[in-house]
């Protein structure tokens, strides 16, 4: 079964077309990088995937559940890390996670156990009682990832999660999410405009001006070229 299946998705803001006939499938447990320059349509795609907008044309299916016909089941399968920080800065990591657990209907001992588990997964157990304001950028991102995993989603959507982080932290978070896909079988869609976050073995989708220009295994797509140069060549002329 596919983790995420998108078929013939189009979306426009009035006259301005943001996505044009986008179709792709991601097998379960695969790390897929969605590479695109700013303005390529990545954020619109994420807004559609998380049902902040509803689809105008086309369909989205999450672990077999249609987002249009069964939105609650489909959303329940999704964990999401937005570009903006969603944690309350004045609450501790634990308090933040409890709040988000409750939004997923998890409380009491079940929430406690799940929070301990996800914090361990992102190596943040010892930070549970620190306020988010005291954490550095990397730890805040890890806490966001822990938060997105609380309800045990089968699909994890991350929208440029490494923005504003130093190279070491970026590498560490990228490695960690790759590991989540490999060892926990989570389907990951990782949006970025940074080619160095993509491995040769990753499933790669290049989005430009609302259209898919490449869809395949990264190594096969870039061939002998360096991915960053290939990406620039494929998307040159973009804003």
């Amino acid at each position: 079964m596919t983790g995420l299946d998108i078929q013939n998705l189009s979306f426009a803001y009035g006259d301005k077309v943001a996505l044009k006939n986008v179709s792709f499938s991601i097998p379960r447990g695969t790390f897929t990088a969605l590479l695109g320059p700013n303005g390529a349509g990545k954020s619109t795609l994420y807004a559609l995937l998380t049902r902040l907008f509803v689809t105008q044309e086309g369909s989205i299916s999450v672990s077999g559940h249609s987002l249009d016909h069964n939105p609650r089941k489909a959303l329940g399968e999704i964990g999401v890390v937005f570009q903006q920080l969603t944690l309350d800065m004045d609450l501790t990591v634990n308090q933040n996670l409890r709040y988000f657990a409750a939004l997923q209907g998890i409380s009491g001992k079940a929430a406690h156990a799940r929070i301990a588990q996800v914090l361990a997964q992102v190596n943040m157990s010892e930070r549970a009682n620190e306020t988010v304001r005291k954490l550095n950028g990397g730890h805040r991102r890890r806490a966001e990832i822990a938060r997105s995993l609380i309800h045990n989603p089968s699909v994890l959507l991350l929208d440029e999660p490494t923005v504003g982080l130093d190279p070491q932290t970026r590498a560490s978070i990228t490695d960690h999410v790759h590991d989540l896909a490999e060892t926990h079988g989570i389907t990951v869609l990782w949006a970025t405009h940074l080619a160095d976050e993509v491995r040769d073995t990753d499933h790669l989708i290049i989005l430009n001006k609302g259209e898919i220009v490449d869809d395949g295994i990264c190594g096969d797509i870039r061939k002998e070229h360096d991915l960053a140069s290939y990406f620039i060549a494929q998307t040159s002329g973009a804003k």
Binding site: T50, Q83, Q84, T86, L103
Partner: peptide
Amino acid sequence: REMGSMRLLLTSPLP
């Protein structure tokens, strides 16, 4: 909403 947590609230599977 600007900070993202409203977005998160709205992506909860609850109606």
